[in-house]
Design a protein around this nucleic acid. Structure first.
Lengths: 128, 128
DNA sequence: CCTTGACCTTCCCGTCACTGGAAGCCCCGT
DNA sequence: ACGGGGCTTCCAGTGACGGGAAGGTCAAGG
């Protein structure tokens, strides 16, 4: 398979696949003409990476999880720990965003939103 | 005031303040020796920017809001629109993160997290 | 008067995970 | 033989800074 094939089959852009090779997440073969040559296992890995990234795992987490994925002697506890930590980061981020949403929501509601210049949003944010 | 003073009084790092000058958000004076010289209005603007950034507004939004803040003839509707759009982006992001949280949470719960290699997390994410 | 140390300046590189684009090779169909 | 699409590498840019180097400036202490 050429890169275009794995790109369409994995849903990842070709650019991203080249980048993943560059940083060592995958090691596709090369044909005589210099083209990358992907096997089914490569495709499988790329799909795996795509799902990890869609869940917001960092590239470093992906590297760790990929190593665990390929390690037949892994302990599931190691996988769980990475996922758990990521879950905690996600939950913290949700909390932050909810605080922002609450503040913004109040500000938006407090503003008439008409043609007059008086604006409680600016008033509040500029320090009263 | 030198940059160190406004940094500690605004809570923004000096690096950030220089950056804000570089991109035109503020225009502090200079003294004869080349040092930036900030007035109270500059400090006020920086505090304003700090609050906007803490709410997650982009620099471009900050630029717009700063212009509206300085425009005595603004319409509050323009301010409200910027805030409203940002609120919508925040809400969309919260939704995304909550979907991720739900998925991750299920995965984490499904994994025994012991010394054995069997891992529903990897199984699920690698495509069953 | 000299030095020390804290402050200031600019400049350049690094972050993270790509994305866009240029220049050039390769392969297939007509 | 040629045109068009796909492939290659390399370089630059993204957003919003942060780290650190090299060097100028200022106030206080010896």
């Amino acid at each position: 398979m050429n890169i275009g094939d794995v790109a369409s089959r994995s849903g990842l852009p070709a650019k991203t696949i080249r980048y993943y090779e560059e940083i060592g997440l995958i090691q596709p073969d090369r044909t005589a003409n210099g083209y990358r040559s992907f096997c089914e296992a490569d495709l499988h890995k790329l799909a795996f990476l795509g799902r990890l990234r869609a869940l917001g795992f960092s590239i470093e987490d992906c590297r760790t999880l990929m190593a665990l994925y390929e390690d037949e002697a892994r302990a599931s506890a190691d996988v769980k720990q990475v996922a758990q930590q990521h879950l905690e980061r996600i939950e913290a981020k949700i909390q932050d965003l909810e605080a922002v949403r609450a503040t913004l929501s109040e500000l938006v509601d407090s503003c008439a939103g008409d043609s007059r210049p008086d604006c409680p949003i600016l008033k509040n944010l500029s320090g009263d």
